[in-house]
């Protein structure tokens, strides 16, 4: 009869092998991706209002990730100087910080966020703190509007 220590070894080996197999095609986050076609980030950013409310899948290099909670990541667009933020519910999906630079597919609902002046100040202050920048509230003159993909799932490739 197998003793407890042997059982522990068997369980560890089986779990490790399963996780290695699962990660061969990229690591899945949340619900993964289900759509067949990707939409170019440059197309979305050219006429963002046309895409609001649509479920989209985008592809790009991860160029930034929320450092504390992993609750958002930014994907580089297919053209220079473009990025799209993928925001997920805190805790529902956690993007690892080490995934910066890796290729990813992300799926979600495209949305337009219109902030009040107070929310704009809060957001810019938080952004400045996160990036170690100085923040001057007097420089902010008008409320912010931005677009993001409300992420439902993603696949990050090694």
């Amino acid at each position: 009869m197998l003793n407890i220590s042997k059982w522990l070894i068997i369980i560890t080996v089986v779990f490790s092998a399963t996780s290695l197999l699962a990660e061969e095609d990229g690591k899945v986050y949340g619900k993964g991706v289900t759509l067949e076609d990707t939409t170019q980030i440059s197309d979305i950013l050219a006429t963002p209002d046309d895409y609001v409310g649509q479920r989209l899948m985008v592809k790009g290099r991860i160029v930034d990730v929320c450092k504390k909670r992993g609750c958002w990541m930014e994907l580089a667009g297919d053209q220079e100087f473009q990025t799209l933020r993928i925001k997920v519910k805190d805790g529902e999906i956690v993007f690892p910080l080490q995934s910066r630079g890796k290729l990813a597919l992300a799926e979600g609902v495209f949305e337009k966020i219109e902030l009040s002046m107070e929310q704009t100040l809060q957001r810019m202050k938080h952004h400045a703190e996160e990036h170690g920048e100085t923040f001057n509230a007097e420089e902010v003159k008008e409320p912010m509007t931005y677009y993001q993909l409300r992420g439902l799932g993603a696949v990050i490739f090694e």
């Binding site: 290099r61 160029v63 580089a76 100087f81 990025t83 080490q98 910066r100 890796k102 290729l103």
Partner: peptide
């Protein structure tokens, strides 16, 4: 080097595997 990215003209971000940016 994992990849690189140009966030704006005159700037580059270089990503090294799992460690440095």
């Amino acid at each position: 080097v994992e990849s690189s990215f140009r966030p704006e003209p005159g700037r580059i971000r270089i990503f090294y595997t799992n460690q440095y940016t």
